[in-house]
Simulated scan of single mutants.
Amino acid sequence: MRISNRVGKTPALRWNSWFVDLGLKQLGYKYVSIDDCWSQESCNGSGYLVPDPSKWPNGIRAVVDKIHGMCLKFGLYSDAGIETCAGHPGSQGYEQQDADLLGSWGVDYWKYDNCYTLCNGENPVPQRCCIPRDSQAWYTTLGNAFRSVNYPILYSLYSWGLDNVWTWGGSMCLKAGPTRQTGYYT
């Protein structure tokens, strides 16, 4: 589901090195998005996400500027839990810090997964699980953080079709207004 405010008109397309040459840009695809493992396996001493220098020798901002120079938009991935699905740092407890960092880099799209969050009350250890649970609070925390960032970011709530995201996901985005962010969830 998409909020009608001009952002996210087409499905977000993942990385394709022939993006422009194949004519995908002319068909309306605008987002070049990098999934898990783009960051180092730990944050820096201040808790900030750090791009893996072997993959991003000039940093994220240099790549974003190049993508924007091609009239395309750039996206990254993270997680509502303490780790991403592949074990890199998640955003739990650092939502505002991560939102501010993304805005400073000019990131246009943020895929937000749901790994390493609490699965149920019986097992309080965060873990990967594919069972319905109440994930609305995790997604709302980052949604609130995005509201204070003065940069429009397409916020993709990814929960593998669980947790009835389609019933509440759009409402958190409507509060932000059409110039700040929009919601897209799967």
Rank of each mutant, 00 (worst) to 15 (best):
Met1His: 09
Ile3Lys: 03
Ser4Ile: 08
Arg6Thr: 07
Val7Lys: 12
Thr10Ala: 10
Ala12Asp: 00
Arg14Ala: 14
Arg14Lys: 12
Trp15His: 06
Asn16Met: 04
Ser17Trp: 07
Ser17Arg: 13
Trp18Cys: 08
Asp21Thr: 14
Leu22Gln: 13
Leu22Arg: 08
Leu24Gln: 09
Leu24Lys: 08
Leu24Trp: 14
Lys25Tyr: 01
Gln26Cys: 00
Gly28Lys: 03
Lys30Phe: 00
Val32Tyr: 08
Ile34Thr: 02
Asp35Leu: 05
Gln40Glu: 14
Leu49Gly: 10
Val50Glu: 13
Pro51Ala: 15
Asp52Pro: 02
Pro53Asp: 10
Pro53Tyr: 10
Ser54Pro: 01
Ser54His: 10
Lys55Asn: 01
Trp56Phe: 13
Pro57Ser: 06
Asn58Trp: 01
Asn58Gly: 02
Ile60Pro: 06
Arg61Ala: 12
Ala62Asn: 06
Val64His: 10
His68Pro: 03
Met70Asp: 05
Leu72Gln: 07
Lys73Leu: 11
Phe74Ser: 10
Tyr77Leu: 05
Ser78Thr: 15
Ser78Met: 07
Asp79Leu: 01
Gly81Lys: 04
Glu83Thr: 11
Gly87Ala: 09
Glu95Lys: 02
Asp100Gly: 00
Asp100Gln: 09
Leu102Tyr: 14
Ser104Leu: 05
Val107Leu: 01
Trp110Gln: 07
Trp110Asp: 02
Lys111Asn: 11
Tyr112Asn: 02
Asp113Lys: 09
Asn114Pro: 00
Asn114Arg: 06
Tyr116Phe: 15
Tyr116Gly: 03
Asn120Gln: 10
Asn120Trp: 05
Glu122Val: 03
Pro124Lys: 09
Pro124Trp: 15
Pro124Met: 05
Pro126Phe: 10
Gln127Lys: 15
Cys129Arg: 04
Arg133Ser: 04
Asp134Val: 03
Ser135Asn: 06
Ala137Asp: 06
Ala137Met: 07
Thr141Arg: 15
Phe146Asp: 00
Asn150Lys: 10
Tyr151Pro: 05
Leu154Val: 12
Ser156Tyr: 13
Leu157Lys: 09
Ser159Pro: 00
Gly161Asn: 06
Leu162Ser: 04
Asn164Asp: 15
Val165Leu: 15
Ser171Arg: 13
Met172Trp: 13
Leu174Ile: 08
Lys175Asp: 08
Gly177Trp: 03
Pro178Tyr: 09
Arg180Asn: 15
Thr182Gly: 14
Tyr184Trp: 12
Tyr184Pro: 01
Thr186Val: 08
Thr186Leu: 10
